[in-house]
Simulated scan of single mutants.
Amino acid sequence: MELRQLRYFVAIVDHGSLSRAALVLHVAQPALSQQLRQLEQELGAQLLHRSAQGVLSTDAGKVFYEHAQAILKQVADAKSAVTQSAERPSGGVTLGLPHSISGALALPLLMAARERYPEITLQLTEELTGNLAEQLKSGRVNLAVLLDDGQLGPFACTPLVEEELRYICRAGSVFARPGGSIALEQALAATLILPGLQHGVRPRIESVARAAGLSTANVIEINSIAILKSALLADMGATILPAAPLLAELERGALVSQAIERPAISRTVVLCAPKNIPLTNAAAAVGRLVQQVSAELCAGGVWLGATALPA
């Protein structure tokens, strides 16, 4: 198996046809087809379904595509690590962010990276926490911001912030409760719009509830932040989330939030890197920048409900 075969296969999948991939790669289509056949023979599996309309990945092809992407990224990182300097880090860095954190961190981080490290190409990917952990293990992302659920053993972790979870609903909602705060038992008794269990917020809520002898009763599961916002604004229920992903609606008064007490709920946000894959100078620089920007956002009150943690 050769690296060029991996590059060819990834290009075919990305462009959806052999002819388009051949044009992009500047390779004759018969030669591209031959390399693909050799790859499939070596693996003993069909990777692509071919038709007049193009190609689609088989189940085996989908699995192999993920591995091929990870291998090619690690090769590129290895080349970059040899050529870049510590004083002027350069190259590509991929950072994974959970949906519920990107609203607070993504834009300030991109602006800071552009200003301080103009030779680094920073790519942000937004995913569910569970998906990010898998991508970090395989090397498809260099770094990831994750939630400390006690199962981050495979990673080297640096604490970033402790983030408060709040009870949030539409202004004037039937689910609104008087006062500046609400007991956890009251919050859990409402119809709640929450992410699924694969989302980092939900397991934390369930864990705190169990420890208090409580449970969620009536839950509408929505994994998309955009759809969850729409459901809140339609007054289908309330939610328990950090303020960051709903900040725009909270600031304009469309949504209101209350602190949760007896007990309060918070989550620990950490920056993670794989233990078995060395960081390039560029990735290490981005990691330091994530810590610095997170602390600045907390100190300035921009990351609402978050308190910076010592590294």
Rank of each mutant, 00 (worst) to 15 (best):
P89V: 02
L188D: 09
L184T: 11
P242H: 08
K137C: 08
N223R: 12
E66D: 11
Q46G: 04
G300Y: 10
L36M: 10
H49M: 13
D235K: 04
S257I: 03
E134Y: 09
A31K: 14
L309R: 00
H67K: 15
A22S: 12
K137W: 12
L72S: 08
L43I: 04
T280P: 00
L232A: 06
G200C: 01
L165V: 14
V93L: 04
A282T: 03
T307F: 01
V141G: 03
Q186F: 01
I265Q: 05
Y8Q: 12
I240F: 10
Q292P: 09
E221G: 10
A183K: 08
C169T: 08
V286D: 06
S51I: 13
G196N: 06
H199I: 02
Q84N: 08
E134L: 15
S215D: 10
P154H: 12
A183P: 01
A243M: 11
T239S: 03
C157Q: 08
L132T: 00
N131H: 10
V55P: 02
F175K: 07
I227K: 14
G91Q: 03
G287W: 01
L188E: 05
E162R: 11
A295Y: 01
G91Y: 08
S33C: 09
F9N: 00
G92C: 12
C298R: 03
P274Q: 14
L105N: 01
G287F: 02
W303R: 10
P263H: 09
E296S: 07
V270F: 01
F175S: 04
A78F: 05
S173Y: 12
T83L: 10
T94V: 09
R50G: 03
G44M: 12
E162T: 15
Q35K: 11
A306W: 06
L241A: 11
L246C: 06
E164K: 13
P98I: 07
R140W: 04
L279S: 06
I227C: 13
R204N: 04
F155I: 13
A31R: 12
L232V: 04
A283G: 05
E296C: 03
A285N: 01
A243E: 07
A133M: 09
G180S: 15
G92W: 06
K73H: 11
V27G: 03
A187G: 03
A104Y: 00
H15V: 11
G253N: 07
P203T: 09
A112E: 09
Y65V: 10
E42Y: 05
G153P: 05
Q123M: 13
V201A: 07
K73Q: 09
E87T: 12
Q123Y: 01
R4Q: 12
S102G: 13
P154D: 06
L297G: 04
W303Y: 13
H99N: 11
S181E: 05
I168W: 02
G180I: 07
Q53H: 10
A254Q: 14
L18R: 07
M236Q: 12
P89F: 05
P203W: 06
P263L: 14
F9C: 03
A190G: 04
P203S: 12
H199Y: 08
V27T: 12
A176P: 02
K137S: 13
S19P: 09
L232K: 05
